[in-house]
Design a protein around this nucleic acid. Structure first.
Length: 732
RNA sequence: GGGCGGUUAGCUCAGUUGGUAGAGCGCAACAUUGACGUUGUUGAUGUCAGAGGUUCGAAUCCUCUACCGCCCACCA
């Protein structure tokens, strides 16, 4: 009790409280049942933590995620549910490997091939382990009531079993296939990437209009003249009168010293209104051109290689950087008087999300997931898709949102989700990096084998590639619960998960992929509700970044102001789907709030020493009214939490406690407390003070768990059960 | 090009089914040996982006416009 005399000190409190929660086993739903805190037949509430990448440390966005999820978890635990929050981390394949490669090059001047697969993997694993340890510590510091006994990693053995099982099933169903086609190639990362891993950057460039040769009848336009040495066709619209007579004609040309053969074809893809209405077709360097080439059986001539240099087939240009080749070709065009027009245009350049390199479209043999292929779904718990019916992955992804089984908050993101699904092409899942789940496919000559283990017999070689990291994270909500063991107790008890709380920036990367994998593999939804939070920005609304120097480190805030204050500052003032602004002042403000609760409690405890709380006395009319007013707030707050309006719930509690309970009720209680001790008024005010305080502390607990837990132990109103497993206050 | 969101007090934002505007911070004045100065009390400030419409009544619903931000596609 002596410590109440000083201001609240979060540093002396938080670690100690967290340790006693952990020792009590309260984070583990099984222990809660064993110890009688939760009824074994109670309803369940489960969240699987979006696994942070093991690429370093947590930032404020993670802190916000942890705060929101912990509120949901603590609230539901207090409501008596069997509550599971399952932690884990993500190996984040490309992100982690490229980070380690950068360090390797900086510190030792070495590249991945200097070390070899095994040695590089050792380095990456060491780095990942260190990051993991840092992250786990940070998650604890935030006060997350998360079940560490169930911790998972997207690249551990159990998840690897899940990945191989999923891959094999999709392979056997013909949904995973190997195909030679144009993929997004990252020349810096030396790997393919998916469409979603591309970031478009706007820049100015020149659009050149020219002819291949003096004799060629049509002028074409391009922003990439160097790729034109790989042209094998010119496409015109079949309805275009200007060029009708030329369709089918073929030309042999020496273009910038490189012999090319070009056929004029009719294709709807050519827009008569754009440029000259004719498209130079470079099958090896453009998705659309590739498709045109397929339709007209045009040959494919490589132009650019894996190192973003001109390919061997480009004659005198071979081995040159694309930018140099471009200059050379433009000069040649000018010299030959073939260039008809140069104009500045705004253009989007495709860059790789992780490495920043300019992405080159290249034809490659890769593994894909077919999102449009029909298959039979043996079991389905999806409304509108019967067990045993024929469907597609795209259809499944649409169905569960359409039929309302999954609710996205805020709902405007449902539209964005559908837009993505509609535009979705086959998902390229193979990556030419070493850190990740190895593709479970083996080759022997022409033979291909896909299985859980290597095939028996001599001469089988496993595919060198690994899987896109989102393949394994797509399985996260059920691979962490024991799948593919269908008898797993966790899977039965906690799936589908209740809530998926994550950033809106990964709705496509992750949320959609989880839906794809879960509906396909389990015939189930992965989660009932998706709550999307926004980005944490600085006080001016700028993105936080190292280069801007406006990063706010969660650990530093926790150290200075406490985890409680940090959590409150990340909750209040921001609804779902909106970016949140954060400043140190805001965090400081909520530190004051923790202290306010602390001091209000001190005042109450000092003045109710002789109160018999177990016996509710007859209350004055005013006190009954005060309690009723509190209960209105409580009801409101409960409804807000039930409807995922955590920001409103937190603000209402804050406001009620400070400006109603402390400023009004406690203030007016002062004169009453100094009156006759045995008067009914005195007894009434004492009891009411304790009653409202106790229930405020309960209600505040999910938001500011540490200070409330600390104060709870000092209240004379209860037996010695910890607040974390106490019940949420109910309106009488 | 397609779509989404925003525009409310100096700043950050609430405003959950339409009933003539709220909170925090900031600002100003006052109070204070009193649970807390990490405090309290009082106060000022808004043609709710603009225009039109529906309605007895609109910040709230509809249409259009402007500006800001974001997402998707990517046209050679």
């Amino acid at each position: 009790m002596d410590k109440l005399l000083k201001p609240y000190n979060s540093q002396d409190t938080e670690d100690r409280i967290y340790a006693s929660w952990e020792q009590g086993g309260f984070f583990n739903p099984d222990v809660c049942i064993q110890k009688g805190y939760t009824a074994s037949d109670a309803d369940y509430f489960s969240i699987v933590l979006p696994p942070p990448n093991v690429t370093g440390t947590l930032h404020m966005g993670h802190a916000a995620m942890l705060a929101i999820e912990d509120i949901a978890v603590r609230y539901n635990r207090m409501c008596g549910k069997r509550t599971l929050w399952l932690p884990g981390t993500d190996h984040a394949a490309i992100a982690t490997q490229s980070k380690v490669e950068t360090i390797l090059y900086k510190e030792e001047g070495k590249r991945r091939h200097d070390l070899g697969r095994e040695e590089l993997l050792k380095r990456v694993e060491k780095f990942a382990q260190d990051s993991h340890d840092t992250i786990v510590n940070q998650v604890r510091k935030m006060g997350s009531s998360i079940d560490w006994s169930r911790e998972a990693f997207t690249l551990d053995e159990k998840r690897n079993l899940a990945v191989r099982t999923a891959f094999k099933k999709m392979f056997d169903d013909g949904l995973i296939y190997r195909g030679y086609r144009i993929v997004n190639w990252d020349p810096k990362g030396q790997t393919t990437i998916s469409d979603d891993e591309i970031v478009y950057k706007e820049s100015k460039t020149t659009l050149y209009t020219f002819r291949y040769s003096k004799d060629f009848p049509i002028a074409i336009s391009t922003t990439r003249p160097e790729t034109k040495v790989g042209d094998t066709g010119v496409a015109v619209n079949p309805s275009d009168e200007r060029y009708k007579h030329l369709i089918g004609k073929e030309y042999d040309i020496t273009f910038a010293g490189v012999p090319i053969h070009v056929k004029i074809v009719a294709d709807e893809a050519a827009d008569p209104a754009f440029g000259t209405g004719a498209v130079g077709v470079t099958p090896a360097h453009s998705q659309i051109d590739w498709q045109i080439a397929q339709r007209h059986k045009l040959p494919i001539v490589p132009v650019i290689n894996e190192y973003a240099k001109m390919a061997d087939s480009t004659g005198t240009l071979a081995g040159k950087k694309v930018t140099d080749a471009r200059i050379e070709i433009v000069e040649w065009l000018k010299k030959e008087d073939l260039l008809e027009k140069e104009e500045d245009v705004a253009h989007n350049i495709a860059t790789a999300e992780r490495t920043g390199a300019t992405v080159e479209p290249l034809p490659k043999l890769q593994w894909f997931i077919n999102v449009n292929k029909e298959f039979t779904l043996p079991y389905s718990n999806i409304t509108g898709i019967a067990s045993g019916s024929v469907t597609t992955l795209k259809e499944l992804m649409r169905a569960v949102i359409n039929n309302g089984q999954i609710k996205i908050i805020p709902d405007r993101f449902e539209k964005i989700y559908f837009q993505w699904v509609d535009n979705l092409r086959d998902w390229c899942i193979s990556r030419q990096i070493w850190y990740g789940h190895r593709i479970p496919v083996w080759y022997k000559g022409e033979e291909i084998f896909c299985g859980m283990e290597a095939p028996t017999g001599e001469g089988w070689v496993q595919d060198e590639d690994t899987l896109d990291t989102w393949f394994s994270s797509g399985l996260w909500t059920f691979s962490t619960l024991g799948w593919p063991d269908m008898n797993s107790a966790d899977l039965k008890n906690f799936h589908p998960t209740s809530l998926m709380e994550t950033g809106y920036d990964i709705i496509f990367f992750w949320v959609a992929r989880m839906v794809l994998m879960t509906t396909y593999l389990l015939g189930e939804i992965p989660f009932k509700t998706v709550y999307l939070h926004g980005l944490v920005r600085d006080a001016k609304g700028q993105k936080m970044s190292k280069s801007l120097g406006n990063l706010i480190d969660p650990l530093e805030m926790i150290k200075k102001y406490g985890a409680d204050a940090t959590r409150m500052s990340l909750i209040i003032g921001t609804g779902p789907g909106n970016d949140m602004k954060l400043s140190e002042d805001k965090v400081r403000g909520y530190k004051n709030f923790a202290n306010k609760i602390w001091n209000a409690t001190r005042f109450v405890l000092e003045n109710v020493k002789d109160c018999d709380y177990s016996q509710k006395p007859i209350l004055t009319e005013g006190d009954e009214k005060a309690i009723a007013e509190f209960e209105i707030t409580l009801k409101d707050v409960t409804a807000d939490i039930d409807n995922y309006r955590y920001y409103l719930a937190g603000e209402k509690l804050y406001h009620y406690f400070w400006h109603t309970f402390a400023d009004v009720y406690i203030e007016q209680s002062k004169s009453r407390l100094s009156a006759d001790k045995n008067s009914t008024d005195h007894i009434s005010v004492q009891w009411t003070l304790l009653y409202i305080l106790e229930n405020c502390i309960r209600a505040l607990h999910p938001f500011i768990p540490f200070v409330t837990e600390e104060l709870w132990a000092m209240l004379p109103t209860h037996n010695k059960k910890m607040l974390i497993v106490e019940s949420w206050p109910v309106v009488r």
